[in-house]
Design a protein around this nucleic acid. Sequence first.
DNA 1: TACCGACAGTGGGGTCGCAAT
DNA 2: ATTGCGACCC
DNA 3: CACTATCGGTA
Length: 483
Amino acid sequence: MIGNDIIAILEQIAATASRNDKEAILAKHARDPLLRRVLTYAYDPFRTYGLKKLPKVAKRGEGQKFIGDEGPIWAVFDALAGGVRGAKAEKLVSDWLTLLDGDNATLFERILLKDLRCGISEKTINGVIPGLVPNFACMLAHKFQAKRIKRWPVRADIKEDGFRVLGFVQIGRTGADGTIYDEKVGFFSRSGKPYTTMDHLKAPLLEAVKKLCADWQSGHFASDIDTRYVRHTNATLDGLRVVVESEVVSNDSFAETSSALRKKDGVAEGASMLVFDVVPMSLFDGDDQSNPDLGDYKVRHRLVAELIKRVPVGAKIQHMPSYLCGSEEELMALYERVRARGKEGIIVKPLDGIYERKRSYSWLKIKAEETVDLVVKGAYEGEGKYQGMLGGLLCDFEGVEVRVGGGYSDEERKEFWRLYQHDLKAAEAWGCVGEPLLLGTLVEVEYHETTPDGSLRHPRFVRRRLDKPVADGPGAGIELEAA
DNA sequence: TACCGACAGTGGGGTCGCAAT
DNA sequence: ATTGCGACCC
DNA sequence: CACTATCGGTA
């Protein structure tokens, strides 16, 4: 196949809204090497190209093409993925854009933007061609709904406002089949990106896991641990290859933690690792999202406790506090207590819950939601499927401009954009906004919390408040943004 | 038949590194 | 030194 | 992180 064929396939996939049809088209061409390479280069999250806006060039009608899955063009992607940036990168891209013909240039652009624009992504692709696109997944929570709780009591873990860190810990050992497993520890984010600022926690964590496994295999405390889990951990290497699930916080502030963890050549000295789960690493090896044989949360919670007991003194590795709750009332009372202690909220987990490598209704998060009414100061257009309608509203929050870009229905995006255009025209015609339809009106905005800069974290539109008078009178304080 | 779970695709504040200015 | 962009975290 | 829209399997 050549690039033109790939574009034709992408058009076919884009043309149908049916997910089954998209999958069928993918399946039909699943063996084509060019398609496979295109899908991988576009959707592998570990390949980034450093360009979100592509250089404009005068395209030729006829020119170079993608031919099969080989050729010099792939070196361009590899160079960008390898870190080539700036003018050098821009020249590479614009040179190729002038060489490629129309379809092939389009394909080139879509891969670089990491969006083939046909309504498929890593999940659908891997569903049809298992393992084609590299990915990483860990367990995540849904918003709390009481009806999701099937049995009481539940365990409520504290939810810290920090960073999810998964520690992959492997103890050096020769396996039954002779495979040699190195001794190593790696820290990763919830999307599988490595953290480099917590190397000082590797040795103590490794030490704790080693002791845990030694005591485990000597039958030290295994008698009261779920037999399924013991069988797995003793009969396989899983006990020596574990993933330690934690939240890392530093200096009691999300911004501080963010700064400490992102520094390129830094050590997050103040970082505390709050461990809330331990899972056999084998669960992360294959495509399976879960394995009921790997123990329920009762077992894993106990394992975390045993692990933490074996952490060398002084190392900032602790057990995330958690509490048993027997009713919804107890949950809410606990939530209020932890909020009063400055924590973000709680994560509710069933005692018999298995670890699932996906967003699961088994974990339910409760966190703060605040509401405020804001004056609309401006608006901006959306992108992609929201072109020609509202992208978001510019709102005033105590003198700080907050962009509110989510929460609208598609109908509201169209309507608000119309109203905004009307207000702009009126202002142009009369030099002022006479009776504005959108500008100067109130909208209710929900958010998580205020930020240190005085803005809103996670702002989203709830509804208009035309029923409520604007504090300073209708249309007060309107300034149209400069063109 | 009506509901709901999984996906895709929009959008936010804030932090860093890097390249251009 | 400052600014803007891209990648990531939430 | 937050949200909405859609398809298609389930209840």
